[in-house]
Every structure is written in C-alpha cells, then in structure tokens.
C-alpha cells in the first residue's frame, strides 16, 4: 500500500462521510429549502472528493482525466438544479417553515 493509494482511500472516506451527513440532513431537517441546503452542498462535495481520489489513485491516464472532466459538469448541474428546484418550490406556493424569521422574496411575488 503506497502513498497514492493511502491518500485516495482517505479522500474516499471523507467523501462517504460527507454523503452520510447530507443524507441524514435530508431526513431530519424541517422544510424543503433546508433539506435542499444540506443535501446539495454535502452530497456534491462528497462526490467531487470521490472523483478526485480516482485522479490521485491512477494519475494522468484516461480514467483519471475522465474523472477530472466530470467534476465541473457535476458542479454546474447540481447547483443549477438546486436553484431551479428552490425557485420552482417557491412559485408553487410552498411556505417557509415555522422557524423562519425573514422573507424578502414575498414582496416580489405579490
């Protein structure tokens, strides 16, 4: 077990741990927007970390470079998907949760 394998194993462990936090947040948090917060951030960073470990494990051959290309596509796809879902949920009339303290977007809608 050499250095590259160790580093890639540590990166995978970090990634799976972040995925675990994101999934727990998806179940525990109270309303749609908070679930979107936890799930999008943690799961996207965790998956990026797993893909980066592929690059470190194999070096610059075709499999590593392909994983490197997947990272920006995943970043744009996941953030824009989260943005579109949040906007669509607000347009659909889903209220903010009970603990909310401030809502500036309401005056735009009415």
């Amino acid at each position: 077990m050499n250095l590259a394998e160790t580093i890639s194993l540590i990166l995978i462990i970090i990634g799976v741990l972040f995925n675990l936090f994101g999934a727990i947040g998806l179940v525990r948090l109270p309303d749609v927007y908070n679930r979107l917060q936890s799930a999008t951030k943690c799961v996207t960073l965790g998956t990026c970390s797993i893909l980066l470990s592929l690059l470190i494990r194999f070096g610059f051959i075709d499999i590593g470079v392909k994983a490197l290309i997947a990272i920006p596509i995943l970043f744009f796809a996941s953030t824009v998907g989260a943005h579109a879902l949040a906007r669509g949920a607000y347009k659909n009339g889903i209220e903010l949760g009970g603990k909310s303290v401030k809502d500036d977007y309401k005056e735009v809608e009415s």
């Binding site: 947040g25 109270p30 908070n34």
Partner: peptide, 21 residues
C-alpha cells in the same frame, strides 16, 4: 460543509432560516 454537518448532527438543530435580499 463542516458548518452544515454540525447543524445536522446537533440534537437541537440550531437553525434560523429566512430569505434575504
């Protein structure tokens, strides 16, 4: 990510959400 993980794991869930401009 550590920030969000802390809020998720904490038993009392210290969140105070809102939409700001």
């Amino acid at each position: 990510n550590f920030d969000v993980a802390y809020r998720v794991i904490h038993p009392a869930m210290p969140i105070k959400p809102g939409i700001v401009r």
